[in-house]
Computed example of a mutant assay.
Amino acid sequence: MHITQLNRECLLHLFSFLDKDSRKNLARTCPQLQDVFEDPALWPLLHFRSLAELKKDNFLLSPMLRNLSICWHSSRVQVCSIEDWLKSAFQRTICSRHESLVNDFLLQVCDRCPNLASVTLSGCGHVTEDCLARLLRCCPRLRT
């Protein structure tokens, strides 16, 4: 028996045990598995541990998303807590990338994930008040 002979519910269950990269790699093997990867039911929780993960196409934002966690800690993130006038040009560039990347991602969440119930942001020093206010308006179920 080949994996593609399993019914959709079994495939979704199998995919649920895989991390985002493994899910994406398995989905690349055939159209049927790609279809399972794109099923919103597979994506009620997303956890990101680095900036680079926000740029990958190894996840799906959908109304099924309930819990979102963006947590990263590195020496580069520590730069963001320094007053702007004390930063070098290189440090300001890093902070600018952090700000636009996280805010752009959260705006996508606002547009695609109205049922979001929980958000954890750690190491995201540049999330703007406007972005958070929009997130609260667009996600009326957000409680945590």
Rank of each mutant, 00 (worst) to 15 (best):
A52S: 05
N103F: 11
L107S: 04
C139I: 00
V127L: 01
S74A: 15
D111W: 08
R134C: 00
A52H: 06
P31N: 08
D111G: 10
I94A: 10
E129S: 10
P140G: 04
Q91C: 12
Q5L: 15
V77S: 03
W85D: 15
L18W: 04
V77R: 08
L101T: 15
L68T: 01
D21Q: 10
C131I: 09
C10K: 10
T128V: 01
R76F: 14
L46A: 07
H13T: 01
S118P: 03
E129L: 05
F17D: 03
A117H: 06
S100T: 08
A89S: 12
Q91A: 11
R92V: 09
L6M: 15
C138Y: 08
N58Q: 14
S81G: 10
T4H: 03
F17K: 01
N58F: 09
A52F: 07
K24V: 01
P63G: 09
T120A: 04
L54I: 06
A133L: 11
V36C: 00
E38R: 14
D21M: 07
C71V: 13
L68A: 12
R143K: 09
V36K: 00
C95V: 08
L68N: 11
Q78A: 15
D57E: 15
C124D: 09
C80A: 14
L106V: 06
H126A: 02
D104W: 05
P63N: 11
L12Y: 08
L61A: 05
R49W: 05
C110Q: 10
Q32D: 09
M1H: 10
I82G: 07
S96A: 08
L116E: 03
L65H: 09
R8W: 15
R112L: 12
T93N: 01
K24I: 02
E53K: 07
H47V: 03
R143Q: 13
L26H: 00
L135W: 06
A117I: 03
L65T: 08
K20N: 05
D57Q: 14
Q78E: 14
